[in-house]
Structure formats: structure tokens, C-alpha cells
């Protein structure tokens, strides 16, 4: 049990990093990585929502959709759950933890259309994960996202001051630097855990 959890965690954070090897969540990754602070905020919000969404969607899938034979409604149900969840979390934080809300608030609405969140839920179903495995995969997948976005933000802060061809202004230079970070992450792909 512990081995499985460890192997899922390491896999999700390093080996199969959501951004650098599965391309899930690239839009916020490129959009919110111009400053380290923003990147950290976005990262924490994603970890939070991915963990919660994994748990709730697993329960809905196992106890509502599968018994009723409605698996074809999975995509529809999950996206609605995620949207509602993001709204609820936003309202809850606003009322009870205002300090956290002021830090995460602006990132929360963006998360609904973050494909890493819907992606993790769908992958949980595809991989037949149990409840605990799903939650672990959700949280560690989020941590992998956070690691990637924070690392990349530090790279991007540097490119601001470098001299590159004019036509690379904006997104292209980000993508090219992201490709180099992805290359570094490829080093992990050789790792296998416990045989």
C-alpha cells in the first residue's frame, strides 16, 4: 500500500510531471508564471482544488454514475462538479479564511478551465485508482504542477533581462525556455520505483 502511494507520488511529481510530460495545464502554466509570487499562489490553489476534486469525483463516479450505468456522463458530471467546487471553495474562503482568500482568490476562477484538474479526475477513472490512490494522485499531481510553475517562473524572471530576437517577444521565448526545462525533467523519466 505504502509502496503504491510512494510510487504514485513520485511518478506524479517528477517522472510524469503534469506539465512537462503530459501537457496538462499548460494555459495557466504559461499565463501565471511571470512572477514567482503569482506562480506560488496559483500552484497552491491548484493543489487544493485537485485534491478535493479527485476525492469528490471519485465518490460521485463510484456511488452514483457506475451503479446507474451512466459512465458516459462522466465528462459532463466532472466538469460541473469542478465548477461548483471552485465556486464553493471561493465562497467558503471569502467568509472564513479571508487571509487565504486574498492570496488565492484571483486564481480560483481560472482553475475551472485548467485542464490539469479535469485531466487528473479522468486519469483516476482510467487508471482504476482506489479512493486513497485518487486523492494521492490529485494532490501530488498538483504538487508537480506547483513545482513546475515555480521553477519556470524563476527561469522566466531571468529571460526578462536577456537579449533575444524581437520576434520571440512574449510567448515564443517562454515556450522555448519551457522546452529546455522539459528537457531537464526528462532526466527523471528513467527512474523506476521499486523494480
Amino acid at each position: 500500500m505504502l509502496t503504491t502511494i510512494l510510487s504514485i507520488s513520485l511518478g506524479a511529481i517528477l517522472i510524469n510531471n503534469f506539465i512537462f510530460s503530459q501537457f496538462l495545464g499548460c494555459c495557466p502554466f504559461l499565463g501565471c508564471s511571470n512572477k514567482t509570487d503569482t506562480a506560488t499562489g496559483m500552484g497552491v490553489a491548484v493543489v487544493f482544488v485537485m485534491g478535493l476534486a479527485s476525492a469528490i469525483c471519485w465518490v460521485i463516479d463510484q456511488y452514483v454514475l457506475i451503479p446507474l450505468g451512466l459512465q458516459f456522463l462522466e465528462t459532463l458530471a466532472f466538469i460541473l462538479v469542478i465548477a461548483a467546487l471552485v465556486q464553493l471553495v471561493e465562497m467558503f474562503l471569502k467568509k472564513s479564511v479571508p487571509s487565504l482568500y486574498s492570496a488565492l482568490g484571483i486564481y480560483l476562477p481560472l482553475i475551472t478551465t485548467n485542464c490539469a484538474v479535469l485531466g487528473v479526475v479522468l486519469l483516476n477513472v482510467q487508471n482504476n485508482y482506489s479512493f486513497i490512490e485518487s486523492v494521492v494522485y490529485g494532490i501530488t499531481g498538483g504538487l508537480g504542477f506547483m513545482l513546475a510553475i515555480v521553477l519556470f517562473a524563476t527561469v522566466r524572471e531571468r529571460t526578462e533581462f536577456s537579449d533575444y530576437p524581437e520576434c520571440f517577444e512574449g510567448f515564443p521565448i517562454c515556450l522555448v525556455s519551457a522546452s529546455l526545462v522539459a528537457l531537464a525533467f526528462m532526466g527523471f523519466s528513467g527512474m523506476s520505483i521499486f523494480g
Partner: peptide, 24 residues
């Protein structure tokens, strides 16, 4: 390596750069 994630990021980066150059 072009089949790996590296290639995806690089190709899209280059493509947008070319597009920006052409539009400018």
C-alpha cells in the same frame, strides 16, 4: 527528441515566433 515533450514546446515556440515575425 522532437517526439518528446521537449519537441512540442520548441516547435510551438518557433511557430509562434515565425508568425509574429510575419505579422510584424
Amino acid at each position: 527528441i522532437m517526439n518528446l515533450p521537449f519537441g512540442g514546446f520548441l516547435t510551438l515556440g518557433l511557430l509562434i515566433a515565425v508568425m509574429q515575425y510575419a505579422l510584424k
